[in-house]
């Protein structure tokens, strides 16, 4: 059962809802080790994305994801704008011209997006960034599909890996971004970027798989 254009829209809407719901939480996490704007900035950006989605004519998934990326780039600011913008732009390039995505095409698009984030931000796993949630999520979805798991199971494992990666940022000392200036003082705080990345993968598991199993 391939992933449809409207399911991708549902995923984006679910992510926007999760960001709005956790706006204060994300900003609180950011105020501990950053500059206290992650929830505010992401929420502003995702609201702009929703307005674009509502106005959008039906086209392919690549086009949809690129629209999301460009909107985030021009509305979020800070580091989150270019990083999340790049994630969606690269996913859009990977999904260009496709009206629906197979399981493997989803995994490939996600991998391309995450690779773009790594190139843009130059962060490695363990630097206490969104990469700590995203890289395990890509690996989990790929290995689940390789083992022959259904999409809903692969998405569930992907979200779980992101959650574990997010939690694993707590003891880390930041080596990228504004938190890195705190040195040892950045330990014992969960990274806000990894947290919003988990919300993104959890939204995927909730929307892309839910319909898939309903229709079965």
């Amino acid at each position: 059962m391939p992933i449809s254009d409207s399911q991708i829209s549902d995923w984006i809407r679910a992510f926007a809802a999760a960001v709005a719901e956790n706006k204060k939480y994300l900003t609180e996490l950011d105020s501990a080790i950053g500059d206290a704007d992650h929830g505010i900035n992401m929420s502003r950006g995702m609201q702009a994305v929703l307005a674009k989605l509502d106005a959008r004519q039906a086209a392919d998934i690549g086009d949809l994801l690129k629209t999301v990326g460009m909107t985030l780039v021009s509305t979020v600011g800070g580091a989150g704008g270019p990083l999340y913008g790049t994630l969606f732009l690269q996913m859009g390039t990977s999904a260009a011209g496709k009206p629906e995505l197979s399981d493997d095409e989803w995994a490939a698009a996600l991998a391309a997006g995450v690779a773009g984030v790594q190139r843009r931000g130059k962060a490695e796993p363990g630097d206490k960034t969104m990469i700590d949630a995203l890289v395990p999520a890509v690996e989990a979805v790929k290995s689940a599909l390789a083992e022959g798991s259904a999409l809903d199971e692969a998405l569930r494992r992907s979200a779980e890996a992101a959650r574990e990666g997010m939690t694993a940022t707590i003891p880390l000392v930041a080596r990228k971004g504004r938190a890195s200036y705190l040195g040892e003082r950045s330990a014992n705080h969960q990274d806000p970027g990894a947290t919003s990345s988990w919300l993104l993968l959890q939204a995927a598991a909730d929307t892309l798989a839910a319909k898939d199993s309903q229709q079965r």
């Binding site: 600011g77 800070g78 580091a79 704008g81 270019p82 990083l83 790049t86 931000g121 990228k176 971004g177």
Partner: peptide, 11 residues
């Protein structure tokens, strides 16, 4: 040299 400024100017 701030992460956000550098990334946005690179893009």
């Amino acid at each position: 040299n701030y992460t956000g400024d550098v990334l946005n100017f690179e893009m």
